[in-house]
Nucleic acid binder design. Sequence first.
DNA 1: GTGAAAGCGCTAACAA
DNA 2: TTGTTAGCGCTTTCAC
Lengths: 373, 373
Amino acid sequence: MNRRGSTGNGTTRRRARSGPITIEDVAAKAGVSAATVSRTLNGNYPVATATRSKVERAVRELGYVVNAHARALAGNTTRTVGIVVNDVIDPFFAYIARGVEREATGRGRLCLIAATQGDSRRELALVDLLHEQRADAVVLVGGAYDDPTFTKQMTKRAEALAAAGSVLVLCGRPSLGPDVPTVQVSYDNEGGAAAITDYLIGAGHRRILYLGGPTALSTTAARLAGHRRALAARGIPVEEDLIQTGEFGRRFGYHRLRELLAAGIDATAVFAANDMVAAGALEALTEAGLRVPADLSLVGYDDLPVAAEVAPGLTTVHVPLEEMGREAIRLALAEEDSDTNAAPGSSIMVGTHIVTRASVGPPAAGRPLRRQS
Amino acid sequence: MNRRGSTGNGTTRRRARSGPITIEDVAAKAGVSAATVSRTLNGNYPVATATRSKVERAVRELGYVVNAHARALAGNTTRTVGIVVNDVIDPFFAYIARGVEREATGRGRLCLIAATQGDSRRELALVDLLHEQRADAVVLVGGAYDDPTFTKQMTKRAEALAAAGSVLVLCGRPSLGPDVPTVQVSYDNEGGAAAITDYLIGAGHRRILYLGGPTALSTTAARLAGHRRALAARGIPVEEDLIQTGEFGRRFGYHRLRELLAAGIDATAVFAANDMVAAGALEALTEAGLRVPADLSLVGYDDLPVAAEVAPGLTTVHVPLEEMGREAIRLALAEEDSDTNAAPGSSIMVGTHIVTRASVGPPAAGRPLRRQS
DNA sequence: GTGAAAGCGCTAACAA
DNA sequence: TTGTTAGCGCTTTCAC
């Protein structure tokens, strides 16, 4: 409905209309052709200065705003990128999203964002939706689903995207397989974990409780792997009682450590799988009347804001999340912009480093540790 | 480049092509017309069951993905909404963004997001960009700019959007004026501030330090106004020394309170203009060896995650941020979907309530308070 | 229930 | 430097 009449209009005057202002309207008002208006607006073609000002004036007076969809359709270029996250609140995702948004904006792209709420089917549907939008790149962040069916379905979408000249970017999540056309941005998850475990060992700790993080998912299981590796490298036996995996949230850290404390734990330090878990652990410790780091040392992972906000500040592994988001777009658009379909799937790994705050000290004497009084 | 050849193809067979798969390809494969494919896909028109399955099969086998831009152009419907925030990291914005994203997704819309980084000119440019995208609604969140030129420019955009059948939504930010076509979602900023001040008074406090928040911007100045109003209502004189406005960040809370503590302050409670400031204040207090709430009570505003994360938990004013985001989209799309151009600018105010945690107690005896030792 | 045809608003050859 | 002319891929009358 509300379509403009055909051009077969009896009068020679501009036809009276109510619809949106189009490039034709601007052209008419400026006394030039639509092509000239287009060229002026896009500035990718020589236009006489006088013509240019006439056009600009007409645009201003008419309040003309180009229709991005018409442009996308005709020009075969959308100037948008998509990002799919678990949840826009979670700082882990939010920082990556910030990097994506900033880099995209810097390259003149708008950013489509969608949240899965941890639902893998929604994730697939959202990738489709972003494909429909013909986004120049679709970035998938963190939190993968460890399910072969899912992997197959996502692989199909990666291929479809690639066939359509776009690209699926895996940001901080496991690969879909060697032959799947994706771009990958990862960080040294295992290395960071090994480094901070080694840091704890260097501070004199031998009995370190590993707390939190799912057991299965490869990306995050890497942290535990790094922990084990560091222990092994120093010849410290791994005691399975000291490996307490579970979830990634603050609540898990609080509750599990609370239980452990009630039973009494024989450890001098806690390595929480991420800062959220660490914050929960700290709460349990404080509640139990235990001081950090005097009674127990504590480290986290990710270097989220909460690590700096708790008291004492958390020594943790810094992950350059925002940088990863930027890198995701850089890589994706590099493939895109350089017309070469050459690079079948570039991939990059960013480094991590330890941020020292106040939560680590030498091992305390008395053990096992229990809730006080 | 890469355009398909004209239809004047010598052969009767499907022409060999490499370009994207279009609705025509699906139609050919299913042995129906493009119109039928369209109707099947949109499900808004009767299609024979047999035909439907043929089409669905063709879609699946070809891996066809509809082109949203072509659809938008032809159907005059984009199914996207836009949101402009200061920064995607800031929980205040992130929660509202979550509401917008969820409500939009629930209504089959995709969400375009962009961040201003506090730059008003960027904000104007981003609204233009979202207009180009023909977003069904453009939501502007918080952080307004107190500048008549800016207001005029944004007003122009609100009008342009309205003329184009879209709508500008002001979410938690001041009105552009009575005649500007916008939708507004606000919260009871002043009421919340009055309520929590009254809560403090009820707990026995008479000398309350108000800390943080810009002096100028109307939205946030409302908090100070509410504070004053509650004091006045109880007949407590306002002492200007106890009004310490400034910024909205954690750093401000920390540094300003630290200075005040060094000089000694004669107050029994602190009302921080938001939870960030409160967190900073708490840090300064802890560092000074003062206990909350034993030595000093402390309240915040917004009920951001940090309020629950610090120890002791902050008693604060809960602002239903996510709900505001949802409401923004509901209102905007209600105007949109009900074709009535009737509602010139609906507006809604959501309520706030106090969340009680552990940071408020009875007034301490000894005063003035100083840094200990 | 289905097809043919027109056109959404723009860009990109190709001429001039 | 500018205008003319085809479409981009889809939806939607209007017929049948």
